[in-house]
Amino acid sequence: MAIHQAAQQGFSQQSSTYQRGRPEYPAELLGWLDHDLGARAGADVVDLGAGTGKFTTLLARLGAGVTAIEPVDAMRERLIEAVPGVRALPGSAESMPLDDASVDAVACAQAFHWFANEAALAEIHRVLRPGGRLGLIWNVRDERVDWVAAITGIITPYEGDAPRHYTGRWRQPFETQNLFTPLQRTSFSHSHVGSFDQVVIDRFMSVSFIAALPEQNKREIEARIRALRDVYPALQSETIAFPYQTEAWLSERIR
């Protein structure tokens, strides 16, 4: 399956900005990964769509044997620098360079909406051992906060046909298959703390469909986001706490 242009172009151009601007994951997620997903010490785990390795690092901390699969070369190069020693392979959700029934768990962090299709589920099912588990994780912006909603209002008109988590379309393949159990959701509150440039500017300029725009458009969007500091006092602090809800979805291989 072809990689969506927004992902291929945007993530290739902005891999360093992505690494700086994307949040880590809440400490509470470690317990879920260990107990619920089964990504514990000694387990064989795939980080699918691993990007620059932010989530790979978390899996490695648990002592699991991690294989990171990432199709975008620039992102995978950042991952190899960030998480030395982890096995990092080119590949896609629909074609993983792994043997049948060879892993205990597959995790997709910030990624599954890019390849939410029946072929990907079939491939994930192929590489999982019987009883293996699939975990889907997203850091979701908390748009109950006024300035977060204002940023979303600036970037959304540019998304085009890029797959997005918030639409919920990523759930559709699960509704027509008999390979996995129904999804179960767990949620954790989380904040990305840092400077305005890091947690706001770098975060949104690394959004795939923004990063893929012509330079003039990107400069205009950045200027509009920076102008929000004059409107919202919370953005005028030296340190910003950007609010997220971390969603963790779990499903198990049926047969």
Results as ranks from 00 to 15, higher is better:
25 Y>D: 10
46 V>C: 01
82 A>H: 09
151 I>A: 07
4 H>A: 04
254 I>G: 01
96 M>C: 10
246 T>N: 10
83 V>W: 04
45 V>R: 02
212 A>G: 03
80 I>K: 02
166 Y>T: 11
3 I>Q: 07
62 L>R: 14
227 A>S: 13
145 V>Q: 12
41 A>F: 13
210 I>V: 15
170 W>A: 13
67 T>I: 15
164 R>Q: 14
17 T>Y: 02
235 L>G: 02
192 H>C: 10
151 I>W: 13
251 S>K: 09
10 G>K: 06
137 I>R: 03
128 L>H: 06
16 S>R: 08
254 I>F: 06
93 A>C: 14
254 I>W: 11
83 V>C: 12
85 G>L: 06
41 A>V: 15
122 A>E: 15
16 S>Q: 14
15 S>Y: 07
243 P>C: 07
227 A>R: 09
65 G>P: 03
208 S>T: 15
72 V>R: 01
42 G>C: 11
206 S>M: 06
220 E>R: 08
77 E>Q: 13
82 A>M: 06
154 I>S: 10
21 G>Q: 10
138 W>R: 00
37 L>F: 02
73 D>K: 00
165 H>A: 02
187 S>D: 13
70 E>S: 00
159 E>H: 12
230 D>Q: 08
172 Q>V: 05
149 A>K: 07
10 G>E: 13
67 T>Q: 08
216 Q>C: 02
184 Q>V: 06
158 Y>K: 01
150 A>N: 13
117 N>G: 13
92 S>Y: 04
105 A>L: 04
145 V>P: 02
180 F>N: 09
151 I>M: 12
240 I>T: 05
50 A>H: 01
241 A>S: 14
224 R>Y: 00
110 Q>P: 05
99 D>R: 07
76 R>W: 00
114 W>R: 09
215 E>R: 06
204 F>R: 02
101 A>R: 04
232 Y>W: 03
178 N>M: 07
125 H>K: 02
78 R>H: 13
251 S>Q: 11
194 G>R: 03
176 T>N: 09
54 K>A: 09
107 A>G: 03
163 P>V: 05
70 E>D: 09
11 F>E: 10
222 E>I: 05
232 Y>L: 01
102 S>H: 01
66 V>Q: 13
220 E>N: 07
84 P>A: 03
198 Q>N: 12
252 E>A: 13
71 P>V: 00
86 V>K: 07
